[in-house]
Amino acid sequence: MRKMLKHDLKAIWPVWRIVAPIVVVLAALAGVVVGIGYSDYEIFDSVYWLFRITALLIDTYWYLILSAFSMLVTVLIVVRYYKNFFTDEGYLTFTLPVSRTKLLNSKILMALIWISATLAVCILAALAYSFAYELTLSSSGYMGDIFEDTIEDSVESAFSSQDIHILLFVLEVLYLAAAWLVSNLLLLLLCITVGAVIVKRAKLVLGLGIYYGANAVIVGIFYTGIIVGIILISSAPEISEEAVMYMFHAVFLMGGALFSALGVGAYLLNKKLINKHLNLP
């Protein structure tokens, strides 16, 4: 499996190593432009309006750079998975002296590693943006203050407050986010496999169609659950603040458990399909 993983990682690395630094640099440049646009440097007086408009646009849309980067990595993962398993390349992949389960695990691990690395780069890019913005801003900035205040307030309230709920909420949100991310990936891979197993043409298109359909249903159920929960909590008579807190903990944990169960189910089903039902044409 180590060998498989090495090759899987090497396949995406050439693109990633070029795009990742570009994303960070672009984010920093965006921060500089926004910082200048929101300041009142005299040398830019003649084109002040241009900077201000540009700053407003970039400030609103700069995160699209991160979205595009994440999308690119997802596409690379999907294409690699699909090509290796369900096209003629499968003739090489599945005749290796490696079990199908190990091949699948390698693909999942590869995807998780690249998603984590991409997430880290997105965080780095966000920090680069904020840092560049702070450096360029001529006076104390509105955005920077909010960013710093929010972080500081959250950390302070989580660690210095007597109330343990905030810290628990942070952990629960992290768990929920991780479970959502991993289950989403496993569901995506499962849907591609389903598409490849049940049809002979347009396999990838069908797989992605199934994924978006399933995802819409899952997200619908998740949000319905949250809305119903909020309505029940708000309509409950004489409910203590402590009880509300516990209810929110329950909602977060149930959401995490739901996504965890979904991820495990998707993995087991995918494993079964690849081991028992995948016949290359």
Binding site: D88, Y91, L96, P97
Partner: peptide, 16 residues
């Protein structure tokens, strides 16, 4: 099994 692929060298009709 996958282990017996160690004994087999396969040339498919497709180019992989």
């Amino acid at each position: 099994s996958e282990a017996t692929n160690n004994f087999i060298s396969y040339l498919p009709e497709r180019t992989y």
